[in-house]
């Protein structure tokens, strides 16, 4: 299956902003995170199709996954 992976803030350093990824059926967010060389602790916000997701959320074909470190503002 194919997903769109978007990275933000410091996660872009040495990586990319946006990329298509070919993944095995049933892949979880956690596997994508670890595959990027990130740790679970570094993840601040997971968004799956514009809604908050979890590290153990299962991905489906056509999903957009967005990963942010813990950042904020206001």
């Amino acid at each position: 299956m194919k997903i769109t992976l978007k990275l933000f803030a410091t996660f872009r350093n040495g990586r990319f902003k946006i990329a298509e990824q070919e993944l095995a059926e049933g892949t979880e967010v956690r596997q994508v995170v670890l595959g990027l060389g990130l740790t679970e602790e570094e993840i601040g916000i997971v968004m799956l199709n514009g809604r908050h997701g979890e590290l153990d959320s299962k991905l489906a074909n056509g999903d957009t996954l967005s990963l942010f470190p813990l950042v904020g503002g206001g």
């Binding site: 933000f8 803030a9 470190p69 813990l70 950042v71 904020g72 503002g73």
Partner: peptide, 10 residues
């Protein structure tokens, strides 16, 4: 870390 690097505009 977040605020000093990107400001609120993150």
């Amino acid at each position: 870390e977040g605020l000093p690097t990107y400001g609120t505009n993150v």
